[in-house]
Design a protein around this nucleic acid. Structure first.
Length: 723
DNA sequence: CTCTACGAATTTTTT
DNA sequence: ATTCGTAGAG
C-alpha cells in the first residue's frame, strides 16, 4: 500500500491531522495553511489505511464549487471512483435525503426546490392575498424573517407567543407561508435543511441507518455553519466522536446571515473527546503581509488564537495610498496595475477587493479606458437571469400545471394580452375554490364573464402549455428545452431588437439548450425522476457558473466576501474609510465590528506577493460629497510594514479632476518626476513618479527603449545618472 | 399594455 | 448618483 503519496506532500502538523486516530477533531486552519489539502488527505488516509469504505464518507461544504473540487482532488489522489461518497453542499445533501425519504419527510414525491427569487415571489403573492400593506410588510423583510427562523430551527408552531402586534402578524404570515408551501410542494433553501434535520430526528431507524453508514463525517468551513446545520451534524455523529471539522474563527464573515461562530465552542463541549489542531504555517503570503494580518486580527476579543507564520521572505512592504477622491483612487489602482503587468502579464493574478459592490464601477471605467480586460464577480448567475428563469418556468409548468409560481411568471411573458386585471381575477377564484391558478383559469373561462379578448388570450395560453407538454413527450431533454424555448415565444420575444442586450439573452437561451445537452445524470438515478425534473433541480440548487468569458485572462473585481478562499499575487484593498469599511451599519456594534475586522483579515491574506491599501479623503456617496476618516483598520496595522505612497504634487488642482498625476515634485533635489535619467543596463528614460523614503525609496522610470518600458527601481540599488 | 415620472433606499451572499 | 419599484397617464 502506497501511503507516501498521501503523506509526502504534508508538513508535520498536517500529517498529524491526517493520520490522527478517528476521533472528533477540530482543525483550526488559518488562511493559506492548506485546509482543503488536509481534508482531502484525511479522507484518503481513512480509506486507504484505516479501512473505511468510500461509501462510509460524508463530506459537507457550503458551495458546489468546493464540493466539486474536493471530489476531484480525492479522485486524483486515490485514483478510485468517488461516486459512492457523499460529497456535497449542506443543501445538496439535504435534498438527497429528502428525495430518498420524501414520504417520511412528509413531502409529496414531486416536491420542488425554490431558489430565493422564487421564494420572494411566493411571499409577495402571499402578502397580496393577505391584503397586507406592502409599505408596512416589505416582502424582503418577511423573507428574511422567515429564513432566520428556519435557520434557527424554529417552525411557526414553535414560535413564542407573540408579544406585540408586529410579532403576531409576522407569525401569521409565517404560518400562512408554511401552509402555502406545503400545499404546493415547494421547499425553500432553509426548508431543505430544516426538513432534513426533522427527518433524521423523527425517524430513529432512519437515523441509525445513516449513522452506521457514515462512519466519518467531514465539514469544511465549519465557522460558517448555522444552528440547524450544526444540529443536523450533531444528530449524525452523536456519541460517536466521528465528526471532523475544518474551519477558521478568524474568517467567519457570515454572521449576518445566521452563521454561528459559537458552533466552534459548542463542538468542544458536545464532543468532550475532541482534539484541536491548529494549522498556522502559511504557504501563500510574504512575511510582511502575514505580520500585518496577524496584528489586525489580534485586536479582536475571544479568538481561539492563532498566529500565521511563513518560511518565505518578508517581501515587499504593503503600500498605502491616500487618494484625493474616489476617482483618484481608481486612477491610482489602474496605473499600478499597468505597471505590474509590464513584468507580470497575467491579469488574473490581480484582484481589486472592495467592501460593497457599488464601488466596482469606477474601477471598471478606468480598466475599460485602459483597455485591460476585467471580470466583476457578483452579478447574476446563469440560472438567475430573467430569460433563463422564464424558460425554466415554462418547463416547470409543463411538468406540473399547478405550479403557481411558474404560472404567474410566464402567463404574460412574452406579453400576450393577459393583463393584471385578468390575473387578479384568476387569483380571486383560486383563493375562493382553494385551487391552483391553472384550475382557476379554467373555471374563469367557463364562467364566461371575461371579455372576449381576455378570454381568447387566456385560452390560447392554456392551450400553449398543453401543446408543449404533449409535444415534449418522449423527446430528449435538450430537445424538450429547445422546443419550449422556441414555441413558447420566448426566443422570438428576445430576438426583438428593442430589448436591451437582446443578443445576449438569445445567446443565454441557446446556452440553456446546450446546458441541457451536456447535463450529466450523476445522481445515480436512485430517484425515479424524469430527466427534466432532475435538470430543474440542478438549476435551483446550483445557480450555475457565471459568464462564459471566465476563461479570458482578466483582472478580478469582487467584494471581500466573494474573495474568501481565493488568492492573488497582487491585491488592492480599496475604500479603507470609516463608514465604508468598516461599514456604517457595523460601527456601533462590537460584534459586527469584529466581523468587519475579520473581513479585513480575509482581504489581506488573499495576497501572495503585494498588497496596496487605499482610501480617499473625499468620496461621492449617494450623490453627496463626503469626507470620511481613514479606516480604523489602517491604524491597527504595524507601521513598519506599511509604506505610504505620496504622489505629492499639484494638490491645488481641483480634487474632482482626477487625471493630473504627472505633477513633478522634488526629492532631495536630485531626482524628481520629469527628470531624465540614464541606467547602465536600461539606457535613458524619464522619471514618472517617486515613492517611499530612505532605503525604500523607489522611482518609476519610463525608458526610451520600448521593450524595456516602464520600471520601478530602488534608488538604493539602481545606479541612476541624471542626464 | 407600455411608457414615463416620481420617490425611496442604498453591506456583505450561498444554497 | 443610481437603481428599483410602483403609480398614473397615454
Amino acid at each position: 500500500m502506497d501511503i507516501t503519496k498521501i503523506l509526502e506532500p504534508l508538513n508535520d502538523v498536517q500529517r498529524q491531522v491526517v493520520t490522527a486516530p478517528s476521533t472528533a477533531m477540530l482543525v483550526l486552519a488559518g488562511a493559506g495553511s492548506g485546509k482543503t489539502r488536509v481534508l482531502v488527505h484525511r479522507i484518503a488516509w481513512q480509506i486507504q489505511v484505516e479501512n473505511h469504505y468510500p461509501q462510509n464518507m460524508l463530506a459537507v461544504t457550503f458551495t458546489n464549487k468546493a464540493a466539486k473540487e474536493m471530489r476531484h482532488r480525492i479522485e486524483h489522489l486515490l485514483n478510485i471512483p468517488t461516486h459512492s461518497m457523499w460529497i456535497g453542499t449542506f443543501h445538496g445533501i439535504a435534498y438527497r435525503l429528502l428525495r430518498r425519504h420524501f414520504s417520511q419527510a412528509k413531502l409529496p414525491e414531486g416536491f420542488q426546490v425554490m431558489d430565493s427569487a422564487d421564494q420572494l415571489r411566493v411571499i409577495k403573492r402571499l402578502l397580496n392575498n393577505l391584503k397586507l400593506d406592502e409599505e408596512q410588510w416589505p416582502a424582503r423583510q418577511v423573507q428574511w424573517h422567515i429564513n432566520a427562523q428556519k435557520d434557527e430551527g424554529i417552525r411557526a408552531r414553535h414560535c413564542l407567543t407573540p408579544y406585540d402586534k408586529y410579532a403576531e402578524q409576522m407569525l401569521a404570515i409565517y404560518l400562512a407561508y408554511e401552509r402555502l408551501c406545503d400545499q404546493s410542494g415547494l421547499v425553500d433553501f432553509a426548508e431543505l435543511l430544516l426538513r432534513a434535520h426533522e427527518l433524521l430526528r423523527d425517524n430513529p431507524e432512519l437515523l441509525a441507518l445513516y449513522q452506521q453508514r457514515f462512519t466519518q463525517v467531514h465539514v469544511d468551513e465549519f465557522q460558517d455553519t448555522n444552528t440547524i446545520q450544526y444540529a443536523w451534524l450533531r444528530l449524525l455523529t452523536e456519541n460517536r466522536d466521528n465528526l471532523f471539522v475544518v474551519g477558521d474563527d478568524d474568517q467567519s464573515i457570515y454572521g449576518w446571515r445566521g452563521a454561528k461562530i459559537e458552533n466552534i465552542y459548542k463542538f468542544q463541549k458536545d464532543y468532550p473527546n475532541h482534539h484541536i489542531i491548529k494549522l498556522e504555517q502559511n504557504y501563500r503570503s510574504t512575511g510582511n503581509i502575514l505580520k500585518t494580518a496577524n496584528q489586525i486580527i489580534q485586536v479582536n476579543q475571544g479568538r481561539m488564537g492563532k498566529e500565521l507564520w511563513t518560511q518565505s521572505d518578508a517581501g515587499e512592504l504593503l503600500s498605502l495610498y491616500t487618494a484625493f477622491n474616489e476617482q483618484d483612487e481608481a486612477y491610482f489602482v489602474i496605473e499600478r496595475i499597468k505597471t505590474w503587468l509590464i513584468d507580470k502579464p497575467r491579469r488574473k493574478d490581480i484582484a481589486i477587493l472592495y467592501r460593497s459592490n457599488a464601488q466596482s464601477r469606477l474601477f471598471e471605467e478606468r480598466l475599460m479606458i485602459a483597455g485591460i480586460p476585467y471580470r466583476v464577480y457578483g452579478g447574476l448567475r446563469f440560472f438567475d437571469r430573467a430569460e433563463i428563469k422564464n424558460a425554466l418556468a415554462y418547463l416547470r409548468l409543463i411538468m406540473n400545471r399547478d405550479d403557481d409560481t411558474s404560472f404567474e411568471r410566464v402567463i404574460n411573458t412574452p406579453t400576450r394580452g393577459i393583463g393584471a386585471k385578468t390575473v387578479e381575477d384568476i387569483r380571486v377564484i383560486a383563493r375562493e375554490q382553494n385551487s391552483s391558478l391553472w384550475a382557476a383559469s379554467i373555471a374563469l373561462i367557463n364562467q364566461r364573464n371575461l371579455s372576449a379578448r381576455a378570454s381568447n388570450a387566456l385560452v390560447s395560453f392554456l392551450n400553449l402549455i398543453k401543446q408543449l407538454s404533449e409535444k415534449t413527450q418522449g423527446l430528449e431533454l435538450f430537445e424538450q428545452v429547445k422546443l419550449v424555448v422556441e414555441k413558447s415565444g420566448l426566443l422570438a420575444f428576445y430576438q426583438q431588437a428593442k430589448i436591451d442586450n437582446s443578443e445576449e439573452k438569445v445567446e443565454n437561451l441557446e446556452e440553456l439548450v446546450s446546458a441541457a445537452k451536456s447535463f450529466v445524470f450523476t445522481q445515480e438515478n436512485e430517484e425515479q425522476l424524469s430527466e427534466l425534473a432532475l435538470f430543474l433541480t440542478h438549476a435551483a440548487l446550483e445557480s450555475g457558473d457565471r459568464q462564459a468569458d471566465e476563461f479570458e485572462d482578466s483582472v478580478q473585481l469582487m467584494t471581500l466576501h466573494s474573495a474568501k478562499g481565493l488568492e492573488f499575487n497582487l491585491v488592492f484593498l480599496v475604500g479603507l474609510e470609516e463608514g465604508l469599511f468598516p461599514s456604517q451599519q457595523s460601527v456601533d456594534d462590537a460584534g459586527r465590528l469584529e466581523e468587519e475586522r475579520r473581513l479585513c483579515y480575509v482581504g489581506i491574506t488573499r495576497a501572495m506577493q503585494k498588497v496596496y491599501l487605499s482610501y480617499a479623503e473625499s468620496r461621492r456617496l449617494y450623490g453627496r460629497e463626503t469626507y470620511p476618516k481613514p479606516s480604523r483598520f489602517l491604524k491597527e496595522m504595524p507601521a513598519e510594514c506599511l509604506q505610504e505612497i505620496r504622489l505629492r504634487g499639484n494638490i491645488s488642482q481641483a480634487p474632482s479632476i482626477p487625471l493630473p498625476k504627472k505633477s513633478p515634485i522634488a526629492n532631495e533635489g536630485r531626482y524628481k518626476a520629469g527628470q531624465k535619467v540614464s541606467h547602465a543596463k536600461f539606457g535613458t528614460g524619464v522619471i514618472l513618479q517617486i515613492e517611499g523614503e530612505g532605503a525604500q525609496e523607489r522611482v518609476q522610470v519610463k525608458f526610451n527603449t520600448p521593450t524595456i518600458g516602464i520600471k520601478w527601481l530602488m534608488l538604493a540599488y539602481a545606479k541612476l545618472e541624471t542626464v
